[in-house]
Simulated assay, not measured.
Amino acid sequence: MVVPMYPDLVVNGDVIPQSAVAAELQNHRTSAKNFADALHQATNALVIRTLLLQEATKKKLTAKPQEVGPNKFESEEEALIRELLEKEVKVTPPGEAAIRKEWEKNPSRFRSMPLWEVSHILFKCDPSIAEDRLRAQARAQEVAYMLADNPNKFAEIAKNESDCGSSSSGGTLGQIRPKDTVPEFEQHLRKLQEGETTIEPVLTRHGYHIIRMDAMVDGNVLPFETVRQKISDAIEKAEWTHKAQLFIRELVSSAEIEGANMEKIKSKNTQHSLKRNLRKPTNS
């Protein structure tokens, strides 16, 4: 007798195959500790998708996939869900008073991007290969100790030790802004004050880094007119998402569902299960 790995999911009489649950589970962070939560999120996302597709079929919508990137198009299911939400979820752009009120809550939130001058020393490795990673980590730690004793020799050490092309210029990366580097690099960069160097080597997808913040200029507060459209778009998107969630909760409440606990979906906003199916139409 074969024991199913996942519970059978039945939505208004439609059975969701086990293979679909396994495939969806790959889109959620799983580990031995959080497998049950990830499975719960995956099954809820599948139930929501099925309900949306059932509703699109009921309304006799026809899939018209749109281009979402260079030579990349929606799947038929994605197109049907988008068209359903375009039809059912309507929002009105916020008025001037609402936009200004949001801005006045804290104008300092809206700044130009900061500018950083950064240097680094890279110890290249493939982090997925343990032996390679440990070798690079040992090199990086040794150089970190050298720098602790000789901080003024950063450029000289970078020229001799760094695996990055910037070694020829003493490790300097020049002026960079947020999102110019990989997220794990920027995460540590943001913790540094001007003149500071990371105490411990920083691991990214490229290897281990020793990072120095050479200089920094904070972003300036932007005037209302500059950020007005950005605030308007954010308010409209939040309202659209809220109404889309209400629409989905109505579908869930009126459906016959087996194999999934949808109580949280019915009662409150649960982004983990909804975000896999909610993408605000660009023309709404």
Rank of each mutant, 00 (worst) to 15 (best):
V2A: 06
P7C: 00
N12Y: 05
I16F: 03
E24R: 05
L25S: 01
N34A: 12
N34F: 12
A42R: 01
I48N: 08
R49P: 07
L52S: 06
K59E: 09
K60T: 10
K60E: 12
V68P: 05
P70I: 08
R100S: 02
K101N: 05
S108E: 07
V118F: 09
H120A: 07
K124S: 09
S128V: 05
I129M: 10
E131G: 01
R133W: 00
R139P: 06
E142Y: 13
Y145I: 15
A148T: 10
N150T: 08
I157V: 12
C164N: 14
S168P: 02
T172C: 10
Q175G: 12
V182T: 06
H188D: 02
K191H: 01
T197M: 09
T198V: 00
T198W: 00
T204S: 04
R212T: 11
P223L: 00
T226D: 04
S232Y: 01
E239Y: 05
I248H: 03
E250L: 12
L251M: 09
V252N: 05
V252P: 06
E256W: 13
E258L: 13
A260R: 03
A260L: 07
N261W: 10
M262G: 07
E263P: 06
K264W: 12
K266P: 11
N269Q: 12
H272N: 14
K275E: 15
N277Y: 06
